[in-house]
Structures are given as structure tokens and as C-alpha cells.
Design a protein around this nucleic acid. Sequence first.
DNA 1: ATGTCTGATAGAATCAGA
Length: 258
Amino acid sequence: MKIATYNVNGVNGRLDVLLRWLAEDRPDVVCLQELKTPDDRFPRKAIEQVGYGAIWHGQKSWNGVAILARDAEPLLTRRGLPGDPDDTHSRYIEAAVNGLLIGCLYLPNGNPAPGPKFGYKLRWFERLQHYARELLDLDVPAMLVGDFNVMPTNLDVYAPERWRDDALFRPEVREAYAALVAQGWTDAIRHLHPDERIYTFWKYFRNAFARDAGLRIDHFLLSPTVAEWLVSATVRREVRSWEHTSDHAPVIIELDHV
DNA sequence: ATGTCTGATAGAATCAGA
């Protein structure tokens, strides 16, 4: 079973890229972030036509998350992260697919830091920690997947010293990520590749992709049961080289699980 | 500080967000 995450950076603006990638890789489940579309403009038909059922949680202009399942309908289990009824951002959606509980998330960017956006990021992280513990307590196969907007360690940044004060790398954020993982989650990419420089995002600026000036900010956190099934984790860097592409590359993990 | 994309508002060129 192959499960992917892809910050598509505009699901309508980059529909051609998304469909091309789906046709090439045919993952069983896809977690999408940054849809940037209201719910009624999600490209359901185009995605159905290439063989995927979908659920989504969009909003006008910004954010937005979706879960796709090949030849299946994801069973919606949650739309929106609990813990703040006043949070208007569409950043979390969750579904059961093939016996797995899959939480697809787009954690706030948080820049500039410090400031209100950074405060929102830290509060969102606290809510995620609280909810993630509830998921582990359920003791079902579960994963939290998506754009966490965090580089967990120096190994995940091409130039750590330049990012020290950025909202994606400040100590508070790295500590929040480490505390989340320490609940009992496995960071799939880092678990399989403990010493490798692996990036999932490259800015559009300054030819960052060609220079491999990247960041690892898209993550798979696996519950203990799912971690035992983990076979591989691959960044599909080639997709980042395509015309009109997202600034993120898709990431795919393979599970030895029917 | 720089740099480059998207979607919105508006009906061209700017802006926010990333």
C-alpha cells in the first residue's frame, strides 16, 4: 500500500501537474495540502476521472486539505482539528481508508516570528499534540501526514544558520515537533534514512531546486502498529522539476499492509 | 534584503501569503 503527501500549492492552478503525477505513481492514498479553493470549486470530477475518490476541506484563497483514495471513497472521520471552535482555517481532515486512520494536516507557516501568526502556529501545535495523544490512545493503526512547516533538525535544512529565526525552525517549533514524536510516533522518512539529507520543499526563489537548497517539512508520523509495516519512503524529486510545478515535491511511503 | 509563485480583486496591476 502506497500513501503519499503533496502540498500542491493550488489544486486548480496545478491540476495538470497533480493529474500527471497521479497517473505516473498511482498511490493508493494521497494527502493534499494548500488546495487554495472553496469547497464548491474542488476539482472532484477531474480527480474521479483518473480513478480517485476524494474528501476535502477547503476555503477561499488559502489553506485547504484533501484525502484521495484510488478506487475507493475515503470514509470521513473528522474535518477540522479539535480544540478551538474559533479557528477558521481549513487545515485538518481525517479519513479511514483500508483499515488505516489517516490525518491530513497543513500546519500554519507562522512567519513572521515572533508575532500573532507565530502564536497561532504554536497554539495549533498544542492542539495537534493533544489530539495526537488521543489518537494513540485509541490504539488503532493511525498516521499524521502532511506539511508540518517544521524542519525537525539541522540535517533537514540546507543552511541551518540562515533559518534559525524563521518560524519553520525556531527552537519552540522544533521542540513542539520533538514532543509530538516522543508521544510514540515514528517519523517515517528519518526512521528509514537516519543520516541522509532529504528535502521535500525548495523555494521558488534563487534557483533553489537546482542548487538543492531545500528543506524537509513534509512528514509522515506513524503510530506504532503502522511503523512496523513501513517498507520505504521516497521523495519524488522529479515532480519538483516539472513546468508549472508546486514548490513541494510529493513524498510516498510504502506499507507492507493489504 | 533578496527572490517567485498563487489566488483575489478587478477588469491592469497590486496585494497577501508562503
